[in-house]
Design a protein around this nucleic acid. Structure first.
Length: 492
RNA sequence: GCGGAAUUAGUCUAGCUCGGUAUGACGUCAGCUUCCCAAGCUGGAGGCCGCGGGUUCAAAUCCCGCAUUCCGCACCA
């Protein structure tokens, strides 16, 4: 890459997304469209599908995990057991005058130094506020009564509107399905169970398109393990020399997985193994790994169910973005569901009956796709073009099929070549306009190749194939197109 | 949710002060031209000016409400 190739920012990605069909606001023709909902267009869907195929290859198949597809609406009991009905709700207070909203527990703690657990009875907050004479910090007025704001979307099922919820994370189906899956799929610990799907959170202020949505995609992996065998990991050898970047305090430090375990930065080989294969996966997405870190979360930052937590974050032009939450959830989930449902969640491992612990790799797909776009898009000023230099196997379009000119039978020959490859590859046929313009369009959606039919094609059945990044062209036989494209666009 | 700014075609934008149904560019489509990198020529499509209400003979323009977007704050599993 020469120095004229400039990296681009959030605005540039947004513009590309709108103009080229990656993503755009949901319901935009109606004025009552709600914030926090976005649609993927054709280019976005194609990128997402390929990203998920890579995820399946690099994590699911590599580790022999099971993938399921659960319901998005789940019953009240699930979330009573999971703790989301109690803990996913914040006690909030609103000023009667300026209508500013605050977290009741945090404001009380800040002003009067009294710690009230956020799950406490609402009256406790009201009492503390009146006894300590707490007023709105902005306008000094009184507060309304404390109320709970739960970030789950409630839905009513059937004519009686039975209480149920849109899942706030996909993994709860994995936990409740675990006993059946372990039995019927002949499970053995450690066992990874994965799921891709939508989750729903009623965010107070959704922002920045794909980065904080109310309806979003997660790809979650829950690895069930025997907590006494966290350092007995045969596969560890595969990734012991893989370099990961870990940040425990001020700055990320690059180290191999082996070093991370030996220096106790990562608590055990089991966790290190998964952080290792996750890093290898993200390297293959084309995200710049030198701008990544596993940030170890402090006590206050961790989710209510997590014992140890690392966030996989990547630096972008709008700051560090959390792409994956890696949580060691211990037996929090399985024991909660066991207690609530009275089902047995213990399994046999090595002649020992255990209630498995869970290590979770909870990936935000939308944010990952944004980051891939931002790290791939560049302005090639020398050639006056925007190029999306994504990995060929992730490109929304693999190849453009162009006629140099429309006449003299070139159009027909081009159509014929297009028909020959369009089922196997994401190919885009284009006859209209100047050839340079057509190349530019393909550059913007990241098509790694363009094949062009010219007069010589009619004579010797060869075409030129142009590479997106170098703009250089080679002449090849049409009979070699299939094998060349297969090789160049295949997953690593 | 609070404060500030904004919202005009696929994208960017002029017009708003001082009311008379909208400007330009890029893009897009068709044709001509051109055998290789956003060229040129001709022609076309595309806007209830974010939504709703008010004032007025008349509203993109003035007033009110709402929504969305962006920037801060707060929140963020």
């Amino acid at each position: 890459m020469s120095e004229s190739n400039d990296k681009m920012n959030y605005e540039d990605v947004m513009k590309l997304a709108l103009e080229r069909g990656f993503y755009f606001p949901s319901c935009e023709v109606y004025s009552d469209a709600q914030a926090g909902f976005w649609e993927y267009g054709p280019s976005g869907v194609s990128l997402k599908n390929k990203f998920l195929e890579l995820w399946r290859r690099e994590l699911i198949r590599r580790d022999g995990m099971l993938e399921i597809d659960g319901s998005q609406i789940m019953s009240k009991s699930v979330f009573e057991a999971s703790g989301h009905l109690g803990n996913f709700a914040d006690p909030i207070i609103r000023c009667t005058k300026c209508r500013s909203t605050f977290r009741a527990d945090r404001l009380i703690a800040e002003i009067s130094k009294i710690d009230i657990p956020e799950s406490a009875d609402l009256a406790e907050f009201d009492n503390a506020i009146s006894q300590n004479n707490i007023k709105c910090p902005k306008c000094k007025s009184d507060f309304e009564k404390t109320r709970k704001f739960n970030m789950m979307f409630r839905v009513g099922i059937g004519p009686e509107e039975e209480e149920a919820y849109l899942r706030p994370e996909t993994c709860q189906s994995i936990f409740v399905d675990f006993p059946r899956l372990f039995k019927t799929m002949r499970g053995k610990l450690p066992l990874g169970i994965a799921q891709v799907g939508k989750s729903f959170r009623n965010e107070i202020s959704p922002r920045q398109s794909l980065l904080r949505l109310r309806e979003f995609y997660q790809a979650e992996i829950e690895v069930f393990c025997n907590p006494s065998r966290l350092d007995v990991v045969e596969k560890f050898a595969e990734i012991q020399d893989t370099v990961i970047r870990v940040q425990t305090d001020s700055a990320p430090v690059a180290m191999t997985c082996k070093e991370a375990v030996e220096s106790k930065v990562i608590p055990n080989k089991f966790v290190a193994y998964y952080l290792g294969i996750l890093t290898e996966f993200y390297e293959k997405t084309g995200i710049d790994i030198s701008k990544s870190r596993f940030r170890k979360l402090g006590e206050k930052e961790k989710a209510f169910y997590a014992q140890v937590a690392f966030d996989f974050e990547v630096e972008t032009t709008i700051g560090w973005l959390e792409l994956v939450a890696c949580n060691y959830r211990s037996d929090y989930d399985l024991s909660s569901h066991a207690n609530k449902s009275k089902e047995k969640f213990e399994v046999m491992d090595d002649e020992q009956k255990v209630l498995p612990h869970v290590f979770e790799i909870s990936m935000g797909i939308d944010r990952s796709l944004y980051t891939i776009l931002e790290h791939s898009i560049r302005e090639d000023k020398e050639n006056e073009r925007i190029v999306l230099s994504v990995k060929p196997y992730l490109a929304p379009v693999h190849v453009g099929v162009l006629s140099l000119v429309k006449k003299d039978g070139l159009k027909e020959k081009t159509d014929e070549i297009f028909i020959g490859i369009k089922r196997k590859f994401d190919a885009f046929l284009d006859h209209s306009g100047a050839i340079g313009r057509r190349y530019r369009r393909l550059d913007e959606i990241g098509a790694p190749f363009a094949i062009t039919v010219d007069h010589q094609t009619l004579e010797d059945d060869t075409v030129t194939i142009r590479s997106r990044d170098s703009m250089s062209q080679d002449r090849i036989k049409t009979s070699d197109l299939d094998s060349l494209l297969s090789k160049e666009t295949s997953f690593p």
